[in-house]
C-alpha cells in the first residue's frame, strides 16, 4: 500500500498527461461499456481456491470493457490496449474484482519507475515521419515510427520508446503496446491480470498464481488501415450478445520456485501448470441509466478480493489499491463494499 499523498500523485500524473480534462470520468480507460454476465467455475477450481466464486455455483458478474486511452474521444480502431474489469458478486453483497488488459505484462516494476516513466513519456507533438527518414530507417532494417491517425497531433510514443531504450525491464511491455492493434470485438481478445495473487486451497495450501481470460470465439484483430473506424466496439458487442452469448475461459497459471512473484514486467513462461478455472458468459448489456451505472459509476479495485485470494507484494498492485480509490473519489464513482458489514 502506498501512502495517500503518493496515491493522489499517481492519479494526478495521469491526469496531467491527458490531452484535455476528462471531468468526472476515468483518466485512463475512459471509454468503456458495462456488461452483465455469469461465471461458472470448473470442477477443479474449488480444489485450488476456496474463494466463493470458485465453488461451482453460478455467480453473477459485472464486466466493464474499455479502451486504454485516456480522454473523451473514442478511437476504437486505433491500436490500443483494451481493458476487461470483472466483478464477481458474492452472496453477502461484497465482490471480488479481477482487472485485466490485453497487454500481457506491465512496463514498470514499481511506483518510482512509474513516476520516471511519466516524466519521460510525456505527450509530445506527433507528426508523420518524413519519407526520406523512413527510407533511412528501411536501409537500416529498422521499424519506422508509425503514421499518426487522422486528427492525432500528440502522442507519448516517442517518450515511451526513449524510456524503453534506457530500461530493459520495460522493453517487452512497450514493444508489445506497439504491436497490439485493435480487436474485432471486445469478446475477441485475451486479457491478462498481470500481477501475482496468492490463492488458498481447501487444505490450506497457498499458491502464487496469475489469471488471464481467453475468448472462446478466438482472438481476432481488425486489419490496420490509415483511417480506422472510430466507433464499432459497443455496437458489435450489442449485436453479438443479441445473437448468442459470448464466453471467456478463465485460466490460472501456478508459479513455481524461482518465478518472479512481485514484478509484473516479467510474464511467466508457458511451461507452468495451467488450470482452467471456469467459464464466463456475457449475457446482456444494460441500457440507459443502467448502462451509466454499469459502465461509468461502477468502480473496481484490483485488491478487492474474496477471502481465499490475496494480493502479492507486487508494488504496482499495492499502489493500485490506493490509486484506484483516489481516482474513484475524484470522479464521484460509486463506492463498493469492501466488507459485508460495509465497515
Amino acid at each position: 500500500m502506498v501512502d495517500p499523498p503518493t496515491a493522489k500523485r499517481l492519479v494526478q500524473v495521469i491526469h496531467d498527461n491527458l490531452p484535455a480534462p476528462v471531468g468526472e470520468r476515468r483518466p485512463v480507460h475512459t471509454i468503456g461499456i458495462g456488461v452483465n454476465g455469469r461465471f461458472v467455475a470448473s470442477e477443479v477450481a474449488r480444489s485450488y481456491c476456496i474463494a466463493e466464486h470458485f465453488d461451482g455455483e453460478p455467480v453473477d458478474v459485472s464486466i466493464r470493457f474499455s479502451n486504454g486511452l485516456g480522454g473523451l474521444e473514442q478511437h476504437d480502431g486505433w491500436s490500443d490496449v483494451r481493458g476487461m474489469a470483472v466483478r464477481f458478486h458474492l452472496k453477502n453483497g461484497t465482490g471480488s474484482d479481477l482487472i485485466a488488459t490485453t497487454l500481457g505484462e506491465f512496463f514498470v516494476r514499481n511506483v518510482d519507475d512509474f513516476f520516471k516513466f511519466s516524466d519521460t513519456a510525456k505527450r509530445e507533438p506527433f507528426r508523420r515521419r518524413h519519407w526520406l527518414l523512413k527510407i533511412l530507417d528501411f536501409l537500416q532494417l529498422k521499424i519506422p515510427q508509425r503514421n499518426p491517425y487522422p486528427g492525432e497531433t500528440q502522442a507519448i510514443d516517442a517518450g515511451a520508446l526513449r524510456y524503453a531504450n534506457q530500461h530493459r525491464f520495460s522493453q517487452l511491455g512497450i514493444f508489445q503496446v506497439g504491436l497490439i492493434g485493435a480487436p474485432a470485438s471486445y469478446a475477441r481478445a485475451s486479457y491478462h491480470a498481470v500481477h501475482t495473487f496468492w490463492v488458498t486451497a481447501p487444505d490450506g495450501v497457498r499458491r502464487p498464481v496469475r489469471f488471464y481470460w481467453q475468448p472462446v470465439a478466438g482472438v481476432r484483430n481488425i486489419k490496420p488501415t490509415p483511417e480506422p473506424c472510430e466507433k464499432y466496439l459497443f455496437d458489435e458487442l450489442k449485436k453479438r450478445l443479441k445473437r448468442w452469448p459470448a464466453r471467456f475461459m478463465l485460466m490460472m497459471t501456478i508459479g513455481e520456485e524461482g518465478d518472479t512473484l512481485d514484478d509484473c514486467t516479467k510474464p511467466w513462461p508457458g511451461t507452468r501448470l495451467r488450470i482452467a478455472m471456469g467459464t464466463l458468459t456475457l449475457t446482456e448489456i444494460p441500457e440507459g441509466e443502467d448502462q451509466a451505472t454499469a459502465g461509468e459509476r461502477i468502480s473496481f479495485n484490483p485488491c478487492r478480493l474474496a477471502p481465499g485470494i490475496e494480493p502479492s507484494n507486487d508494488p504496482i498492485l499495492k499502489a493500485r489499491l490506493g490509486a484506484y480509490e483516489v481516482s474513484r473519489e475524484m470522479r464521484g464513482g460509486c463506492p463498493f463494499k469492501w466488507r459485508a458489514d460495509n465497515a
Binding site: 497457498r206 499458491r207 502464487p208 508459479g255 513455481e256 520456485e257 524461482g258 512473484l261
Partner: peptide, 8 residues
C-alpha cells in the same frame, strides 16, 4: 535442495 518455503 534449493527450496523455497512458499512452494516446497
Amino acid at each position: 535442495g534449493t527450496n523455497d518455503p512458499a512452494t516446497s
